[in-house]
Structures are given as C-alpha cells and as structure tokens.
Design a protein around this nucleic acid. Structure first.
Lengths: 141, 141
DNA sequence: AATGCTTATGAGAACCATTCACAACTGTAA
DNA sequence: TTACAGTTGTGAATGGTTCTCATAAGCATT
C-alpha cells in the first residue's frame, strides 16, 4: 500500500521503452510483485492481482510473468515440489534456503561458493551461464 | 551386455531383503540402470527396458523408479527443462554441470562448497537436509 | 476525440510429465 | 500347489503451464 509506486514506475517505464504495452492487468501484477517480499507462485500472484484488478486471468499472469522474466524484471524459481515461484529481480545475486517444514524461503549469498563454481567449470573447459543452488533445510532445535 | 550382472545382483538382493518383489519388469529396469552411464529420463529408460523385456509399461517404469528411489538405489534429478532424469546411486556424493547446448551431464564434487553450505545453514539456525547444485554451462572455445 | 494498426486479454481447450484406479496377473512363503 | 498380498498394463485423471481464437484495448497518428 505504500512504496510501491516507485518500483512500479521504474518497471512500467522500462516496459514502455521496450515497446511493451502497459495494461491494467500488467500494472496490477507489477504492483503485486513490487509489494511481495516472499516468493509467491502464479496462483498466489493471480489471487493478489485479482484483489486489485478483478479482470486478470491466470493465463495473463503466466504470460506477463514470462514477459517480465524476458525483460529481466522477475526471476522464476522451480523449487522442489509444486509450481514455479517468482520474485522481483533485485540488484544482488543470491541463492535460496528452503525450510522443508514450512516452505519458507530465505535468501543467502556466498562469494566463496560463487568463486569455486566458476573455478570448477573453468577447469573442465566450461563457463557458467547460470546456476541453481538450493539448500533444503530444517530448523535446528 | 557385460558387467551388469554384478550390480544387478547387488540391487536385487537388496530389494528382496527389503521385502520387495523382484519381477521381470524390475529386473529389466535394474539392468538398464546398471548399464547406463548417462542420466536418462523415464521415457528413455522405458525404451531401453522394453528392448530387454517388452512387457514393461511406462507406468511401471515410474512406479519402479519411485520404489528404487525410496530404497536409495537411484537418484532422481529435476534439471531445468524436460522431465526428471535418473542415475544409480554411487558411493560418492556429487553435483552436476549441465551443458546448456548439448544437454550433457557432468558430475563434480567440491568439499569446499559442501562445507560452506553447512556453515551458512548453521549460522541461520538450520541444518541442511539435502541440497541441489546445478551449473548450467557452455563450453569455452 | 476519432482512426487504425497491433498487441494483449479471457475462457477454455490442449499439453506434457507423472500418478492413479482397477481388474488381471504373479512372486513368494508356507 | 495354494493362497495371499504385492505388481502390472491400460487408460483415465491430474496439475501446472501454454496455446487458440475471437474480442478488447494500447498507443501513435490524425
């Protein structure tokens, strides 16, 4: 309900520049994405977008998420179990810890791991295009 | 065609011990898995198993793979794009490099990464149940 | 504001990998 | 050999995601 206009404006400006039409449905979804601090799936995003703009179909959510992904605005994650989950792209790269009991997602980042990955790939004659690192964890008691 | 009987015997022995029936279909699939040095998907395993034992259905391939996974005999990997891919469990843990152009899978292992992962989880009050690390790479030229 | 061209949308069908239901079959222990 | 429980093939069902197509609506231009 608050600081979303900032992010949303940046996003829509970027879209216009890319020749992509800014529709009611897309504005709704962008707002929802800007407000989200979790990692919702398409159905959840659909529900949230509908609360703002009832005329958003699930198909459009998927289509728009694809567009936004191509534009680099959102990231799509295929964690174990269930469907894809999304988050707005933020400046710093990170990987994810998933609480296997609650499904909660925690972000983390490790330069060391990053560096070792590149090194391993290089030694085998490859360069890393992208990677996926997920730690499925349980809370220690 | 060759050294498969060894592995297969070990596998079937383990299954019998676990009270799991050793059927024609399962023998065929175990043989195929023992022979495979790649990471085939269910359809590919079905094709290979059919060559040995024509009465193997795709449903049985899936069912058996689930059983074998529960027994710890095979590992299931959900790489990006396409369906799950399988490999027989071998002693040493490893992660995967995927050639984004060819789909080829290369295994690698890094104690450093492993250690840092545990450390990161621990600091956040978690313990790693399992993880998934995949490097999507392109051959350097 | 109205025009026209083009892209986006909603609804529901289609897709694809995987699982399920069920009647027939078959290991396996006795 | 029997008998029972686990297994199988077939085809239908599932669930997430994408596609089709007729209609709606951006947006640059009058």
């Amino acid at each position: 309900m608050s600081g979303e206009s900032d992010k949303t404006e940046k996003m829509t400006a970027a879209l216009r520049k890319a020749g992509i039409r800014v529709t009611r449905q897309r504005i709704a979804l962008l707002g929802v994405l800007a407000d989200a601090d979790d990692h919702p799936d398409a159905v959840e995003l659909h529900a949230r977008a509908r609360a703002v703009e009832p005329s958003v179909s699930l198909a459009t959510v998927y289509r728009t998420l694809s567009v936004l992904q191509e534009q680099g605005v959102v990231h799509r994650h295929a964690f174990e179990g269930g469907g894809a989950r999304f988050e707005t792209t933020h400046e710093d790269h990170h990987d994810h810890i998933l609480d296997v009991d609650t499904g909660e997602v925690i972000e983390f980042q490790s330069d060391i791991i990053e560096r070792v990955q590149d090194e391993i790939a290089r030694e085998l004659g490859y360069e890393v295009v992208h990677h996926r690192l997920e730690l499925y964890c349980r809370k220690k008691r």
